[in-house]
């Protein structure tokens, strides 16, 4: 399942048979269906999909952060330890220490009533048992590492006193305090301006090189994936529809949805202006998925079998897999 260069090592995260359901007045909604994947040490896995594809809910299940009406089943192992539906006390030994998560909007994930110092030292005092002074010192060092100027002074400030980009740096610093083996980044740059996005992506790349931690990068932006990911999972309607090493996803997509996404993006490096190819129809409604393949009513190549039978995720060799009945697709120019 993993690419050859990572396969020798034990995975940091192993997800198997993950199903996530939400109870609603209209019945259960299945946000994640039969998802299985692994992230090797030091690997960056990109998870792409549109809103409602289930990409975030996979990791909310992993972190034990599902909304109250949600429940997950299957298996989630972090460096070998099963943590899915583990008691909170057990989860808390893993969360923040061995894996941590950053979100799209740092303002809603930081506590507006507490100084950054208070929020950061708390992590180290809880997980590492440091005293307050030592924790503050380590926190300042981490803020310097994520390139916050005047970290010693600014650690005493409240979240609203930071700009959006600086807040995201604070989030990243907080997530890295205990030296996690896995950082889950859920749309970490989506709320930021493009010049600030570039700064944060640079920072993540640098941290990835220096610390060797694995990153799960959840995003809808294929450009962000292209810059950072080693391997990519494409989600549609709660399922993995394709996975492949990053170059193959862009050069030889094997699922019509992946191909459609790539062709529907206007690009800065396009030559002349051609009409954008679109994926017709609307994103799938999880409460009312079509029979067979969830993508079939938007797929230009759909045929009888697609309505009759849902295609399984099948290996194509070389670390690639896809869920599609079609013969293999050609190369993208």
């Amino acid at each position: 399942m993993t690419t050859p260069q990572f396969s020798a090592m034990e995975p940091v995260l192993e997800v198997a048979g993950l199903n996530t359901l939400f109870a609603t007045p209209e019945g259960d909604v299945r946000a994640v269906s039969d998802v299985a994947f692994a992230i090797a040490r030091g690997e960056t896995l990109g998870i792409v999909g549109e809103s409602g594809s289930g990409k975030s809910q996979i990791f909310m299940s992993v972190m034990g952060l599902l909304a109250r009406n949600g429940r997950a089943s299957g298996s989630v192992r972090v460096t070998g330890t099963e943590i899915l539906n583990a008691p909170v006390a057990e989860l808390n030994r893993v969360r923040g220490a061995r894996m941590s998560m950053i979100f799209q909007d740092p303002m809603t994930s930081l506590n507006p009533y507490l100084t950054v110092r208070r929020q950061m030292t708390e992590v180290l005092m809880t997980h590492k048992g440091l005293g307050e002074e030592a924790a503050a010192q380590a926190s300042i060092e981490m803020l310097e590492r994520v390139q916050i100027p005047e970290a010693g002074r600014r650690i005493g400030m409240y979240p609203h006193e930071f700009s959006g980009g600086m807040r995201q740096r604070v989030m990243i610093a907080m997530a890295l305090l205990c030296g996690p083996e896995l950082l889950i980044a859920d749309e970490p740059t989506t709320a930021l301006d493009v010049t600030v996005q570039a700064q944060i992506l640079d920072l993540l790349m640098q941290l990835k090189r220096d610390t060797g931690m694995a990153i799960a990068l959840i995003t809808h932006d294929l450009g962000v994936i292209a810059g950072l990911a080693d391997r990519v999972i494409v989600m549609y309607g709660g399922r993995i529809v394709e996975q492949a090493p990053v170059r193959d996803i862009f050069r030889r997509p094997q699922h019509p949805y992946t191909e459609g996404l790539l062709k529907s993006m206007p690009r800065l490096d396009e030559h002349g202006v051609t009409r954008l190819q679109t994926i017709g129809g609307q994103p799938p409604n999880l409460q009312n998925l079509p029979s067979g393949c969830a993508f079939r009513d938007r797929c230009a190549y759909a045929f009888d079998l697609c309505a009759a039978e849902r295609p399984d995720l099948t290996s194509l060799g070389e670390g690639r897999a896809r869920a599609c009945h079609l013969p293999q697709l050609g190369e993208v120019a």
Partner: peptide, 10 residues
Amino acid sequence: AVPVPDPDIE
């Protein structure tokens, strides 16, 4: 600063 959806170029 705009990420280009092509790993080699990006």
